[in-house]
Design a protein around this nucleic acid. Structure first.
Length: 510
RNA sequence: GACCCCGUAGCUCAGUCGGAUAGAGCAACAGCCUUCUAAGCUGUGGGUCGGAGGUUCGAAUCCUCCCGGGGUCGCCA
């Protein structure tokens, strides 16, 4: 632990910073079981060297707290909602949703671990024109299935040409299909049927991916009452005006760069107003914070949404938006075509089958969420040392193996090992990493930056591998073996906790 | 044109509410398995932190301008 006070004071005191540091270091009185020494160093730092008992206590603490080590009660039970993925149910989930799912879920885990009451939610856009468009596309596929396509009509005339609707149509029995293609059946009805099925697939994939959702909130449930109510609240607050027959929300009063239409001149509410109603419901549901993950094409929506929440009386910073950056898939160093033409995009499901859930999540969580990401499929497929996931998982498996080996020799269970035996530099460094874990978790939770955990996990794995290489764990000296085994088990616990927060499995063998 | 994100080693990226010699993985090269998992470890080379100013005792980090890449700007969703 270091402090820079001496350098900050240098100007005020008109003295050389190193002199100040030395003076402080000489005077300062610290408990010897916590701080082994205080040193004034080069430009003017004052360093406090941790005493070995602190590190030993860390190992004990990890072992006694187990899967709760690193948890804290900062959140004090406050309820926080994380809304993520929320992709329209007009097709299967694609790669950027897989990224959002990994990030959102990890944030949920981090907040949970930090003592918040968390809720994961998926906002389902099951209302409006896109549902009708989906219905029309679906109707065409049903006609195809029945051999009743009119001449000159092709899928190119429709908005959703993906092959998944063909597959859906194939699942419908012939009797229903005949009934549904009739022009009298509203496109919206067909769209809802297709959306329901697609949503079921989405939910299944998210489940397999390990992303937690406590609620699926349908936009349709907001119409018309909640949407009307949102409008009333904005009008009552004096935040609206009429122009050209449309109703505008004066979002510029709250920092937006232009005012936004909430009701079109034909009387219909805009998508934005429905979104306001949705967020109002989050406010009404009593969340102390609402965190929302949005795709990079939606970052323009942030100011108007923030403005709306301010107009509705939400506390400042109540709504936090995290922009999840683009994902570009690379194969053999070249970008994979992501065109939406039928069959050409790679789905989240494809990705899970291709590289596995652990690898996919880990790759997404290695980078900070808002930066564009190149996902190297060729690297992700490799089950080798080139793939960073395995580096961390391997450390965990290695410890499990050593512990098994020790148990077979009958010398594993030792709660009273003399940790004072742990004096090697590699042992000390490893214990320091264990000590840092709770701080890393708290920082990652507060900043909503799960990628800090992948960095940490890799550093911890490195510290363990170095320790493993330098120090024989199960050896001739039973006291030393017991101490090192405890250190190894504590490391295993922290690796496991890290991986669990990331939503990645911690294998016992590889 | 306005606004947002990004620019750090050959590649992919950490580090960014100012602090010590800017780190990791991969790639390259050289070593380490009769002993607990070599998916590991050790070492070497590799940097105008996009550029220029400014603030500061101190700048990859803060401010201004510029350059380059991506994105968004609808009474669509």
């Amino acid at each position: 632990i270091a402090t820079t006070v001496a350098m900050s004071l240098a100007k005020k005191l008109k003295r050389n910073p190193i002199e100040i540091a030395e003076a402080i270091a000489r005077t300062i009185d610290v408990p010897g079981d916590v701080v082994a020494g205080v040193d004034a160093v080069k430009p003017g730092f004052i360093n406090f060297r941790l005493a070995p008992p602190v590190l030993r206590a860390t190992v004990r603490e990890v072992l006694s707290q187990g899967d709760r080590y690193g948890a804290c009660s900062d959140g004090a039970g406050r309820r926080v909602q994380v809304e993520y993925v929320s992709a329209n149910p007009t097709g299967p989930l694609v790669i950027v949703s897989a990224r959002a799912a990994a990030v959102g879920n990890a944030i949920l885990n981090l907040l949970d671990f930090s003592g918040y009451g968390t809720e994961g939610e998926y906002y389902v856009n099951d209302y409006g024109k896109q549902v009708e468009a989906l219905g029309e596309s679906f109707r065409f596929r049903l006609k195809e299935r029945l051999g009743r396509v009119e001449s000159g009509e092709t899928i190119e005339n429709y908005q959703y040409p993906g092959g998944y609707l063909t597959a859906l149509a194939a699942e419908v029995d012939e009797h229903d299909a005949s009934a549904w293609v009739a022009p009298a059946v509203p496109a919206a009805d067909l769209g809802r049927r297709a959306a329901d099925r697609l949503l079921a697939t989405i939910r299944r994939d998210l489940g397999a991916y390990g992303a937690r959702f406590d609620a699926f909130f349908g936009e349709s449930s907001l119409h018309p009452a909640a949407v009307e109510d949102a409008k009333r609240r904005l009008v009552a607050g004096g935040h609206t005006y009429e122009q050209d027959g449309a109703l505008f929300f004066r979002s510029t009063d709250f920092g937006d760069d232009k005012d936004r239409v909430i009701q079109k001149s034909d009387g219909e509410p805009t998508y934005f107003l429905a979104d306001v109603a949705y967020h109002a419901s989050k406010l009404d549901r009593g969340f102390s914070r609402a965190i929302g993950l949005l795709g990079p094409d939606h970052h323009g929506h942030v100011p108007r949404m923030q403005a709306a929440m301010a107009a509705l009386g939400a506390p400042a910073d109540w709504l936090e938006i995290i922009i999840v950056g683009w994902v570009r898939l690379l194969e053999d160093g070249k970008p994979v075509s992501m065109s939406k033409r039928a069959g050409e995009f790679i789905t989240m499901h494809d990705l899970m089958e291709d590289v596995g859930v652990d690898v996919a999540k880990y790759f997404f969580l290695m980078r900070r969420a808002n930066s564009p990401l190149d996902f190297d499929l060729t690297l992700a497929r490799k089950q080798s040392d080139e793939n960073p996931v395995y580096y961390v998982q391997y450390a965990h498996a290695r410890i499990a193996s050593v512990v098994r080996f020790a148990e077979e020799r009958g010398g594993a269970a030792r709660a009273d090992a003399d940790l004072a035996k742990l004096v090697a530099p590699e042992e000390r460094l490893l214990m320091l990493h264990l000590l840092h874990f709770p701080g890393v978790v708290a920082g990652a939770a507060e900043a909503r930056e799960p990628h800090r955990l992948t960095t940490y996990a890799q550093e911890l794995a490195t510290a363990f591998h170095q320790f493993y290489h330098a120090c024989r764990i199960v050896g001739d000296d039973p006291e030393l073996s017991a101490a090192r085994l405890d250190l190894a088990r504590a490391t295993r616990t922290v690796l496991k906790n890290s991986l669990q927060l990331l939503g990645v499995s911690a294998p016992s063998s590889m």
